[in-house]
Each structure stands twice: as C-alpha cells, then as structure tokens.
C-alpha cells in the first residue's frame, strides 16, 4: 500500500484541493453532538469528534429516496436524480468504514442494488483516526482498523498524518495536492506503532465475539429477552443510528387526482410493531421482546451465518441513543455470563 505523510498544518490546504473531487462533507458540531454536513468553510470541520448522530450510511441509503417515478404513459421509470452527485466524506472513523464494507456485502452481492452502488462509487471516503470513548467497543468487533473501503486514511502521528492510499482515486487526490505529501521516515513508523498500541489500551468496553452464534442459540429462551422487552420503547433509535442497519420500507406515493406517483423507500426498523406484519393480519414478531431479540440475534448471530462476521462494528451509537439504557455490550456479556466492570 502506498503510504505518505501530510503535515497537520496543511490539512486545510489539502481540504481545499480535495473539493475538486466533490462536495466536501465532514463532521460538524451542534450543541455537543456531531453530524456529517456539507461544509461552508473548513473551520466548521470537527475532526476530533467522537461519533456522529447518524453514521455515513445516510449518504448511501438515505432516510428517504425515490426509486421510481410512475407515469401512465411510461410505466415505472427509475429515478436517477442526485445519484451522480460527487461527495467527499472527510473524516470517517474506521468502524464506520467497516460498516460500509458490511453494507457492500448486502447491497453489492446477489441482486445488486444499483442506487447504493452508484453512490458508493461516487462518494469519496477519507478516513481518520479516533480516540475511543466510554461507548466504543470497535476493537472487540474487529473494526478498529480499516484495511479497505476508503480512498485515503489519515492516522495521527503528532505533527503529521500518516496517509494510507486505498484507491486510485485516493492516489489522484494525493497527486493533485502535489508537494503537500512527503515520504514516511523510520521515526514516523516507530511513532505510529507506539500510538497504535497505546490506543488499544484505552478501550473501556470489551466483549468476546468468538462463538457468539453458539451463545445466542443456547440462550435463545433466556429470561433476559423478556426483561429487555419490558424495557424497550420500540422507538427505533438504535436502528436509526446503526451504521449497518439497512431495513427499509417501500411505498407508492400517488399524486392527487391521478395514478401517477413515486415509489419511495424509507428507513424502517425491526423494532417497530409492524415490521413482520403480513397483509392477512398475521404478525410474526408481535411482542417487543421478540423484536429486540430478533435485532440482537440478526446482528450477532444471523449475519455471521450469512456473511461470516457480526454486522455490529462497535461504534457505540446504539448505547448512546437508547433512552432506557439498553446496552449491547452489557447484554452480550450477560448472555455469556461475564460481568464487566464498565458495562452495567
């Protein structure tokens, strides 16, 4: 892999050059919370953020998008607006890049989802290092380092960012900025390794994912699911903020006084009461406990069977977003019978 380094003081210069590759979006702050937004000026970017409210998924699978326009004369015509828009996501954390790689498995295999894949091609990802906070457990989920799925990845080594070039487009960005980048020295490598092992020690949450599918099967009837069902609000916050939740609903919106309309898809959540309701009235997951169990089961067990790894990346968003304090790390450790000091 091509690795260079970029002087931190020249980051704004780099960002200005990057604009030619698309509209620059980065984490911005609002009352202590962060979200990816289009930057009006580079000074708005907060690369020291802990996590954004919504993950970058919103750029690839928007909360609401039009799939088709139906017109009597033409039938269903695919909607292509905005698909070609080129965006540079500046400052994506490793866990969120892993999450996109997981979504690639879902939308980029079997039947290919052309909407997702077109956006994936048109959106540039510049990754950045982060410092784990009290909700992070990406290391446990093997998502604390991204090897693929980005165009460039910036790793903090003090005065510089080590810059890992992941794609040809990433390389084009480096080349476009010319002399901003320089060669990596031996002492840079030493510093990178020091910081890397230091980061490993800063995680406050820990869980073991080995044989998790077996644990889930064994504990399928455990009391904890009923308990969680009593607590869970079915508000869907955890699904909305999850970087790998991809459930969606599809609806036709008809125009007043005609059959013409749009077919749209909208985010959905397996926690909503109607998620498994069929037209005849049968609801296959009628109780809250069955729905929250399904959510955990699908992420930590079902996805492993299908794609070889859990679909959780340990970003901590669901822990932060749950109004009643349901904590995935706590749930899993309890299923395992392991108490962890900081997971209550």
């Amino acid at each position: 892999m091509k690795i260079l380094k970029l002087e931190k003081g020249k980051l704004d210069l780099f960002a200005s050059v990057v604009q030619q590759f698309g509209e620059v979006h980065a984490p911005t702050e609002h009352e202590g919370k962060f979200s990816f937004k289009r930057l009006n000026s580079w000074s708005e970017a907060r690369l020291d953020y802990n996590r954004t409210v919504l993950p970058p998924r919103k750029y690839f699978l928007p909360p609401r998008e039009t799939l088709f326009k139906y017109r009597e004369a033409t039938g269903y015509v695919p909607a292509t607006e905005d698909l070609e828009k080129r965006v540079v996501l500046f400052g994506v954390h490793a866990c969120d890049i892993h999450a996109l790689n997981i979504l690639d498995e879902v939308f980029g295999k079997g039947y290919l989802d052309p909407y997702y894949l077109t956006r994936r091609k048109n959106i540039t990802i510049i990754g950045i290092d982060c410092t784990p906070d009290e909700h992070c457990f990406c290391r446990s989920m093997r998502a604390d380092f991204a090897e693929t799925g980005f165009d460039l990845f910036l790793k903090d080594i003090g005065d510089h960012y080590l810059t890992f070039v992941g794609t040809a487009r990433g390389d084009d960005m480096v080349i476009a900025t010319g002399p901003l980048f320089s060669e990596v020295t031996h002492s840079d490598i030493v510093e990178y390794k020091r910081r890397s092992s230091q980061k490993c020690d800063t995680f406050k949450l820990d869980l073991e994912i080995r044989d998790l599918p077996e644990i889930f099967e064994l504990e399928y009837q455990a009391d904890i699911w009923e308990e969680l069902g009593e607590k869970c609000l079915s508000c869907g916050n955890c699904s909305m903020v999850c970087p790998t939740c991809y459930c969606y609903d599809v609806a036709d919106e008809v125009k007043l006084g005609s059959h013409d309309g749009d077919r749209v898809r909208l985010w959905d959540s397996c926690l909503f009461a109607t998620h498994a309701l069929v037209a005849g009235g049968e609801n296959f997951r009628k109780t809250r406990s069955s729905r929250i169990k399904f959510r955990f089961y699908h992420k930590q067990r079902g996805f492993v069977a299908e794609y070889g790894r859990p679909s959780c990346v340990g970003c901590g968003r669901c822990i932060e977003a749950c109004p009643v304090g349901i904590n995935i790390v706590g749930v899993i450790n309890r299923l395992r019978g392991v108490e962890h000091a900081s997971t209550d």
């Binding site: 609002h30 009352e31 202590g32 919370k33 979200s35 954004t52 409210v53 919504l54 909360p63 609000l233 079915s234 508000c235 869907g236 916050n237 699904s239 909305m240 903020v241 985010w267 959540s269 909503f272 932060e320 977003a321 749950c322 109004p323």
Partner: peptide
C-alpha cells in the same frame, strides 16, 4: 413510525438521553 425515529433521521439532539 414513532416520533423518535423521525427525530433521529434529522439528527436532532435527543431530549430523553
């Protein structure tokens, strides 16, 4: 869909948490 989900979709700060 509950109000919460629509609130999250717009990335408003959560008044509950």
């Amino acid at each position: 869909t509950p109000v919460c989900a629509e609130c999250k979709m717009r990335e408003y700060n959560c008044l509950l948490t």
